[in-house]
Lab assay of single mutants.
Amino acid sequence: GSLMYASIFGNVSAIIQRLYSGTARYHTQMLRVREFIRFHQIPNPLRQRLEEYFQHAWSYTNGIDMNAVLKGFPECLQADICLHLNRSLLQHCKPFRGATKGCLRALAMKFKTTHAPPGDTLVHAGDLLTALYFISRGSIEILRGDVVVAILGKNDIFGEPLNLYARPGKSNGDVRALTYCDLHKIHRDDLLEVLDMYPEFSDHFWSSLEITFNLRDTNMIPGSPGSTELEGGFSRQRKRKLSFRRRTDKDTEQPGEVSALGPGRAGAGPSSRGRPGGPWGESPSSGPSSPESSEDEGPGRSSSPLRLVPFSSPRPPGEPPGGEPLMEDCEKSSDTCNPLSGAFSGVSNIFSFWGDSRGRQYQELPRCPAPTPSLLNIPLSSPGRRPRGDVESRLDALQRQLNRLETRLSADMATVLQLLQRQMTLVPPAYSAVTTPGPGPTSTSPLLPVSPLPTLTLDSLSQVSQFMACEELPPGAPELPQEGPTRRLSLPGQLGALTSQPLHRHGSDPGS
Rank of each mutant, 00 (worst) to 15 (best):
G281T: 08
P263K: 14
L503N: 11
L491Q: 09
P428M: 06
N163E: 06
P383Q: 14
S410A: 09
S272F: 13
G511T: 07
K185P: 03
K185W: 14
D174V: 07
Q363R: 10
L417A: 09
K154A: 11
F351I: 10
T336C: 04
G355C: 04
F344K: 10
P474T: 09
P449R: 10
F213W: 08
R385Y: 15
L178K: 09
R301Q: 15
P320L: 15
L376R: 09
R360L: 07
G438C: 09
D196V: 07
M220P: 10
L461H: 14
Q418P: 03
N219M: 09
T457M: 12
R240V: 11
R404T: 04
R307W: 03
G298T: 14
S462K: 14
V450K: 01
Q254E: 11
M413T: 13
T218F: 11
L417E: 03
V147E: 13
S136Q: 08
S302W: 10
S345W: 08
Q421I: 03
N349L: 02
Q254T: 08
R167Q: 13
S443L: 08
S432A: 11
M327L: 10
K241L: 11
T436L: 08
L419I: 10
L195W: 03
V148M: 09
R385W: 15
G267S: 10
F158C: 01
T372K: 07
A177R: 03
R388D: 15
D412G: 03
D335T: 08
S283M: 05
S460M: 08
G346L: 05
G159P: 01
P314A: 10
I350M: 06
R246E: 15
Q423W: 05
Y362I: 13
P373M: 10
S207E: 04
D196E: 07
R394Q: 11
I157S: 13
P305N: 15
Q501M: 13
C368P: 12
E253Y: 07
G159F: 01
R137E: 11
Q423R: 10
T425C: 08
G476E: 09
P452Y: 12
Q421M: 11
D156C: 08
S259G: 11
S460I: 09
S460G: 11
S352Y: 04
S136F: 04
T415S: 15
P454T: 11
P225L: 10
P387N: 08
A411E: 15
E231W: 06
P502F: 11
H204W: 07
P492E: 06
F234Y: 11
P478M: 11
G267C: 12
V347Q: 13
V416N: 04
A414R: 08
Q361W: 03
P475G: 10
V258H: 13
L473Y: 15
K154G: 06
L162Y: 12
N172Y: 10
N214F: 02
V416K: 03
R265T: 14
I378W: 04
K332W: 13
P317G: 15
N349S: 06
Y133M: 04
S451W: 14
N403F: 15
G232N: 07
P339W: 07
R216P: 03
L503I: 07
D196Q: 09
L162C: 10
D356C: 04
S171A: 10
S208E: 13
T457D: 09
G355R: 11
D509I: 05
V149Y: 09
P369I: 09
V258C: 14
R385T: 12
D196W: 08
Q482F: 13
P284C: 06
S381V: 09
R404A: 06
R408N: 14
P502A: 12
L461Y: 05
P439E: 13
I140E: 01
R367V: 09
D189N: 12
V194P: 01
T248F: 09
S382E: 09
S374K: 07
D196Y: 08
L417S: 03
E297R: 06
S303Y: 04
H506Q: 07
S341A: 13
S302R: 10
L191G: 01
S302Y: 06
P317I: 15
